[in-house]
């Protein structure tokens, strides 16, 4: 659905985004992760046609965004990180203005506006946007994104500055959109947020793509390959001495029924055999998967 091909954007000779290539399939909720200054917003602005790439191109459903911006924009809904509306207008008037830019027929426009406002619980509000809370503005941003019923939604830092209640509402909306088959790109530096709503992600550091993959698989893959993982063991009877070259350090509790082993590779199979041979009954044997945050930090430091 979305293709970024060797995308590069330079400012004063410095690459904000460098040789970025990504494929985002239809129906995916894709998280674009990275620390501040990683190039997430620049990437997103190129994707939605707000800035021109220095080289490379963005395709949305086969449409080159730089060459056919109007066609591409009709297929997308974008909510910027610092989403702002006209404060002298009501939510409905704001949406009325934007809907007119989509050339929606007047008759269907009013119904559509009512629908999207209802969806974000802002229906029937007469007060001007200037009097809205940050959460309400963010919800209005979601409503605006849905106005033209786009196939692709691009949300830049959608939960920044939101309180937990608003975040929960936002997640609910994104999940329902995912269920409708929309392709959603979410940029964020809030890692738990991405892991909560996204199905896949990419990490950007200093404008370069560091890694990409599925949210559910990537930490496990990392745990299987990267040094510094841990295995937690809990038994019904005391543990014997454990001697394996992959074990870097081990820590036992007082009665030796619990241990945490720092290992260089996954040795759970060896542990099962070793404890079975010793007649020790296993209550729990689990690998401590690094959190998304740990993965992110490792990549970040590695970059």
């Amino acid at each position: 659905m979305i293709s970024l091909e060797r995308l590069r954007k330079e400012y004063d000779g410095v690459a904000a985004v460098d040789d970025l290539s990504l494929e985002i399939p239809r129906g995916e909720v894709f998280g674009l992760l990275g620390p501040n200054g990683a190039g997430k917003t620049t990437t997103i602005l190129m994707l939605v046609g707000l800035i021109q790439p220095t080289s490379g191109r963005c395709l949305v459903d086969g449409v080159d965004v730089a060459l056919e911006p109007i066609v591409a924009k009709r297929r997308m809904g974008f909510m910027p990180d610092d989403v702002g509306f006209y404060e002298n207008l009501t939510a409905e008037q704001n949406l009325e203005y934007f809907a007119a830019l989509y050339d929606l027929p007047r008759a269907s426009r009013s119904k559509r506006i009512a629908d999207v406002l209802d969806r974000v619980d802002l229906a029937g509000l007469d007060k001007k946007v200037g009097g809205f809370s940050r959460g309400m503005v963010q919800r209005l941003g979601i409503a605006k994104v849905l106005l033209n019923d786009p196939d692709v939604l691009v949300l830049d830092e959608p939960t920044a500055n939101l309180d937990p209640l608003c975040v929960a509402e936002y997640r609910k909306i994104v999940r329902s959109l995912r269920d409708e088959g929309k392709t959603i790109v979410v940029s964020s530096h809030i890692l738990p947020e991405v892991s909560k709503v996204c199905t896949s992600f990419a990490i950007l550091v200093r404008g370069r793509l560091i890694t990409t993959g599925s949210v559910s698989d990537l930490p496990v893959q990392l745990a299987q390959t990267a040094p510094g993982m841990a295995i937690r063991v809990e038994t019904r009877t005391p543990l014997p001495e454990l001697d394996h070259p992959a074990i870097l350090a081990s820590r036992f509790d007082q009665d030796r029924t619990r241990a945490r082993l720092e290992v260089t590779e996954d040795i759970r199979d060896w542990l099962v055999d070793r404890l079975g041979d010793a007649g020790v009954l296993i209550r729990e044997l689990a690998i401590e998967e690094p959190s998304l945050e740990e993965v992110f930090m490792r990549y970040y430091h590695a970059a």
């Binding site: 939605v48 046609g49 707000l50 911006p69 109007i70 066609v71 924009k73 009709r74 997308m76 974008f78 909510m79 910027p80 610092d82 989403v83 702002g84 509306f85 006209y86 404060e87 934007f98 830019l101 989509y102 050339d103 941003g141 605006k144």
Partner: peptide, 17 residues
């Protein structure tokens, strides 16, 4: 005002030149 308020980015993300 539109730049500071964030509405310019929003406006230009619509199908307008």
């Amino acid at each position: 005002r539109e730049k500071e308020g964030g509405s310019l980015k929003l406006l230009l993300s619509h199908p307008v030149y």
